[in-house]
Structure formats: C-alpha cells, structure tokens
C-alpha cells in the first residue's frame, strides 16, 4: 500500500464556526502499527485526533480509511466503518457493570459477542474478576481498561485513544502500554495522543510532533527519540 490504512490528510479546521485550530495537518497509521501524536500543550493533539474521528469540521483536506473517503461521515458512522474511539474523560458508563459496559460497546453488533468479550477478558484479566461490579467503583487504571475494552467490542480495525494514561500512576501506565502493544499485535491500528511523550514514542512505530496545529516533526518513534532537536524542544533534553 502506498498510503497508510487510515490517514487524515492536510486537515485544516476548527470547532463549529470558531477559528482554524489545525493547519494542513496530516496524521496516518498503518495496519497493526502504533502511531503516537505528541506535542506541547495546546498544540492541537486531541483536536487532530478528533478531526480524524469526525468530531470537528475539516474544512480542507480529507480523511481516508482503507482508501475510502470518510471525511463527511459522522463519528457514529465511522464507528460502523470500524473505528473505535476512547475519549480522554467520561469514557465509561459509571453506573453500569463492567460487563454491561462491554455489551454497550458492542451495541451496533447483531452477531454473537461472547468471543470478543472473552478476548477482552483475556487481555485485561482483572476485568473478568470485576465484571459484575459498577465500573464507576474501579480504580483509575481499571477504568481505562474498561474504556479500551468497550471500544474493542466493536472489533474495530483502528483504535483511537485520547491520552489513555492521563492521571494514572507510572506502573499502571507501563502496564497499559503493554496491553496496547498486545492489541496492536492482533492487527488493530492504534492512534493515540499522549502527554508522556518519551514513553509513548518508545512503543510507537510512527510519531507525529505537532506544534500549533501543524506537523513539526514526523518519523518513527526511534528516529524522533534520537532527533536532538525533538529531544531539546519536547522531551526535556
């Protein structure tokens, strides 16, 4: 394939009638790869991801999934096309049990979801133990697992994560990253926004450094970590 499996190409746009936040920004990820968007605060990292997911107006450029133009589709329609999205906050149904959260994740599916649920439980064994507990009662790391599990229930081809490690301890973060690598190994593309740039780039196949809504540096995770300029400006030396 000449072009990544999922690509938001030359995206320019902003929220509603507001000013443009993204300027000719390009984000892409290939099958089974992990792509990470990093950058300083206010660089438009989450905005870029939301643009790929259709949560804001892309005035120029377009979004393509497996070669198909999905620029005009609503987020809900993109879920049906095989995109899974884990928002940064409010990403679980707190009053419902873990299992019900997973069931709701699979709401659009009409086939048997038992196998997928089994896969999620295998990936996150702790969720199996807590499956009848209200998701809102779980710890921060466990809640993130529920959130990722919920998104996986649609059997997506692309999983998008908005700062999955925000507010969790370093140990939990490492574990979450391990799980994300496992998910990628099953052939699912991962696109995520991360505050913890260094750790994220270490597991990334592809990295995008955004500054003020535009691509500043792009490369493999390793290259970016090695790039002295990226190190100096964004990784604290």
């Amino acid at each position: 394939m000449s072009e990544p499996f999922l690509i938001g190409r030359d995206m320019t746009g902003g929220y509603g009638k507001g000013p443009d936040i993204l300027h000719n920004c390009t984000i892409g990820v290939d099958k089974g790869e992990i792509a990470v968007i990093v950058g300083p605060n206010g660089a438009g990292k989450s905005t870029a991801m939301k643009a790929v997911f259709g949560m804001l107006d892309v005035r120029q450029g377009g979004v393509f999934l497996n070669g198909k133009d999905i620029t005009k589709l609503s987020p809900q329609a993109r879920v049906r096309e095989g995109m899974g999205f884990v928002p940064q906050t409010s990403n679980i149904f707190t009053s419902m049990t873990v299992e019900e959260n997973l069931e709701m994740g699979a709401f659009i599916r009409t086939d048997d979801i038992k196998d997928t649920m089994e896969q999620v439980y295998t990936l996150f064994p702790i969720l199996r133990d807590k499956r009848n507990q209200a998701a809102g009662e779980l710890s921060g790391g466990q809640r993130q697992q529920v959130a990722v599990g919920r998104a996986l229930m649609t059997k997506p081809t692309v999983l998008m994560l908005d700062e999955p490690t925000a507010g969790v301890s370093p140990i939990v973060m490492d574990e979450l990253f391990d799980r994300i690598i496992e998910v990628a190994r099953t052939g699912i593309s991962i696109l995520m926004v991360e505050q913890n740039a260094r750790q994220a780039l270490e597991i990334a196949d592809k990295g995008y450094v955004l500054v003020q809504g535009a691509n500043a540096f792009t490369g493999t995770g390793k290259d970016l970590l090695a790039d002295p300029e990226v190190r100096k400006s964004f990784l604290g030396g």
């Binding site: 987020p75 809900q76 409010s90 679980i92 149904f93 707190t94 009053s95 019900e100 709401f107």
Partner: peptide, 22 residues
C-alpha cells in the same frame, strides 16, 4: 434487555452512548 440497558447507558453518559452507536 438490550434496549433497557441502552436506556441506562444513555442516561449515564450521553456522548459515550452515541459513540457506542445507541
């Protein structure tokens, strides 16, 4: 029931319910 649970999900977190295709 599925419909009943989708109602609870919608009541709990409207945005996430939309994302889940409810």
């Amino acid at each position: 029931t599925r419909t009943g649970k989708s109602m609870r999900a919608y009541s709990d977190n409207e945005d996430l319910a939309l994302l889940s295709g409810i």
